[in-house]
């Protein structure tokens, strides 16, 4: 843990952990620096030396930040939390690709062995009108929360629900719903899209509930409400190029978008009474 100019390590308390046998490299980073939402940002070149190949990308940034603080410079702000690829908090466009060069990998799970000595790495935040930059590499993704609030739930109160096994769900359907539910809400799909569309994110949630029997009663209202909110937040329309699927760190499929279109279309042309009849 690094605090200010004082590198804080329980060195005496974890003597067993100071063995380091990895390969090392020197890198040139071009990092997007921006003071806050209202100021202009720019790329700043920072040297990252003696980086071990078994570090994660974020650990590399930790090291760079320790160095910056030691020099009295403002460390680079970036979002991160679980560092095991599930919380969806980390982001970063690395050399033009959300979450970096490796497929199905979040930035926190990306390791420096994917880079080579002497390489230049360009690091930017997610770029989208609906995701304003807060500082450096961190963006405001609260638009995603508002889309979920618009309809990403089943109307059920705590208690008074049927037994969990009362409704059998075919394994194939349950598995498909699960696949859609694995979305970690990181926003890479938006960052990957030329139109900054959030269709993959929205369609994953809509699909999960559209597939499950529990989600049927509000199926079409949900699709409509979530899409309306998505438009309101300023996300663009689907480009049909599939960049979102290619960059999604958990492999959410384009078929979800096809399903979303079908759900939304049905919601638009039929009256609710008719589709439920």
């Amino acid at each position: 843990m690094s605090v200010g100019t004082y590198t804080f390590r329980y060195s005496t308390l974890h003597t067993q952990f100071i063995i380091d046998m990895s390969k090392h490299m020197n890198l040139t980073l071009k990092v997007w620096r921006q003071k806050n939402q209202n100021s202009e940002g720019k790329f700043v070149t920072i040297q990252a030396n003696n980086i071990a190949d078994d570090m994660s990308f974020l650990e590399m940034l930790d090291v760079v930040n320790e160095d910056l603080t030691r020099k009295g410079e403002d460390p680079i702000y970036f979002d991160h939390d679980c560092r095991e690829g599930i919380c969806g908090m980390c982001s970063l466009v690395i050399n033009g690709r959300p979450h970096g060069p490796n497929e199905r990998t979040t930035t926190c799970q990306l390791h420096m062995r994917s880079f080579h000595d002497g390489q230049t790495i360009v690091i930017e935040p997610w770029r989208a009108a609906a995701f304003p930059v807060l500082k450096d590499l961190a963006v405001d993704r609260s638009a995603f929360d508002r889309i979920q609030q618009a309809g990403g739930y089943i109307n059920v109160n705590t208690g008074g629900v049927p037994d969990a096994n009362a409704i059998p769900i075919p394994k194939r359907i349950a598995d498909e719903a699960f696949e859609s539910a694995t979305c970690i809400g990181c926003g890479a799909c938006v960052a990957a899209c030329k139109n900054a569309s959030a269709m993959l994110f929205v369609s994953a949630k809509v699909s999960q509930f559209a597939l499950l029997p529990q989600g049927q009663t509000e199926r079409y209202e949900r699709a409509q409400a979530m899409v309306d909110q998505m438009d309101k937040e300023g996300f663009g329309n689907c480009t049909n190029t599939g960049a979102c699927e290619a960059e999604c760190p958990v492999g959410i499929k384009l078929t979800n978008i096809a399903r979303l279109n079908r759900e939304y279309f049905t919601a638009k042309i039929f009256r609710q009474e008719d589709v439920h009849a």
């Binding site: 200010g4 004082y6 804080f8 930040n65 603080t69 460390p75």
Partner: peptide
Amino acid sequence: ELRNEFWNNVTVLGSNEELNMSLEKAGRV
């Protein structure tokens, strides 16, 4: 010892009015 060292040597960069990683960490530590 660590605690003394921490309070004597801690330097938190940046200001209070922004996203500040050092400040967040310092309080937690």
